[in-house]
Simulated scan of single mutants.
Amino acid sequence: MKISIITVCYNSEKTIEKTFKSVQAQTYKNIEYIVVDGGSKDSTIDLVKKYKSMISQWVSEPDKGLYDAMNKGIEMATGDIVGILNSDDIFTDEKVLENVANFHLKNKNMDASVGNILQFNEEEKTVRKYSAKNWNPEKLKIGFMPAHPAIFFKRDLFKKYGLYHLDFTIGADYELITRFFLQHKITWKFSEITTTSMLIGGVSSSGFSSYQLISKEIKKALTRNNIKFSYLKVQLRGFWKIIGFLNKK
């Protein structure tokens, strides 16, 4: 089983070498590693060239943003399954892709696996584990999605059901997950694998204005896919998270 891993980047010289090293350290070797750069002005491309022996394909050119770059990577991919590794993230250990491959091989009729992630701060201290153990697609209707980098999709799904929609600012991953899991009802399983350590503080995780924008885009994604939902529950999803946290204590 070939796994295509896609890293998109732009001016990522401060973090991307750790990303490359985490791919290089994987015990699973049937990896197609694709790097899509948006035309970086710093030394990112020098680092790409430094690690070119482990990179299957790469391109550096202007794009229309993060999701356009992801689409380019998916269209370049030839693997059986596809995963995303952001340019400031790393795999949690050297056996992540070996474990993912084994899980998919044991569940050959499964369209996607869903796992967990860790979040760390700039001091490299783990501050949160984001688990999908209790997640199910119905939770998309109230604004909850599994961590995007912990999902590994069969590549054929993108041919059947389409790529990321570029008219979303920070919610194209939410829309694609909604489209795949709710509209097309793909088959999936929780893998229990903690796949990725992510640097906290991304484009969709900071501030009230960001909260409002993602709320708007969640509603847009659900409406586009003809999913019935409550506007109020989506708007109050932060409240549901607090309740869920208190119930666990």
Rank of each mutant, 00 (worst) to 15 (best):
I117N: 05
S210D: 14
T196A: 06
T169R: 15
R179L: 00
K160Q: 12
F152C: 01
P149T: 04
M198I: 12
I218K: 02
W135H: 12
L157G: 02
Q235P: 01
N136A: 09
F144D: 06
P146W: 04
L199K: 06
D156K: 14
A150N: 01
T196Q: 08
E123W: 06
F180R: 01
A112I: 10
N121R: 04
Y130H: 09
D156N: 14
W188Q: 07
L232E: 13
Q235D: 14
H165Y: 14
K108I: 15
L182S: 05
E192I: 05
I218W: 04
Y130G: 00
F168S: 07
A172V: 04
F208V: 15
D156E: 15
S191E: 11
S230R: 03
P149C: 05
K125T: 07
S205W: 12
F181H: 04
W135D: 12
F208G: 12
A221F: 03
D111T: 04
D173Y: 11
H165A: 10
G143H: 09
E122G: 09
L176T: 08
S230N: 08
Q235Y: 11
F181S: 05
L213Y: 01
R128Y: 12
I186V: 15
W135A: 13
L118H: 12
H165F: 13
G201T: 01
S191V: 10
Y161N: 00
P146M: 08
D173A: 08
E124T: 08
S197V: 03
K219D: 00
S131H: 02
W188F: 15
P137E: 02
S191F: 10
E175F: 06
L213F: 06
S191Q: 13
W135L: 12
F152I: 03
K189I: 11
Q235C: 12
N225D: 07
L232T: 14
K141L: 07
N134W: 07
R155Y: 08
F144W: 05
N116L: 12
L140M: 14
N226K: 15
G115I: 01
D111N: 15
G115P: 00
Q119D: 10
A150E: 00
N225K: 08
F190P: 05
I200T: 10
L232F: 13
N226C: 13
N225W: 08
K139V: 08
K219F: 06
E175L: 01
F181I: 00
K220N: 01
H148E: 12
N226F: 10
D111H: 10
G202P: 00
G115C: 02
G207P: 05
Y174L: 15
I186Y: 06
K233E: 08
G143N: 11
D167F: 05
S209I: 11
S206N: 14
T126I: 13
I214N: 06
D167G: 07
K216H: 06
E124Q: 12
R179G: 00
N109V: 09
M145D: 05
K160Y: 03
P149Y: 01
A147Y: 09
F152T: 01
I218P: 03
A147W: 03
T195Q: 11
L199F: 07
K219E: 10
W188C: 11
L166A: 05
N109P: 10
N136F: 10
L163S: 04
I200N: 04
R179W: 00
L213P: 02
K108E: 15
E217W: 04
M145A: 13
K185T: 09
K233M: 13
L140Q: 11
H148Q: 14
M110K: 15
I186W: 08
K125W: 00
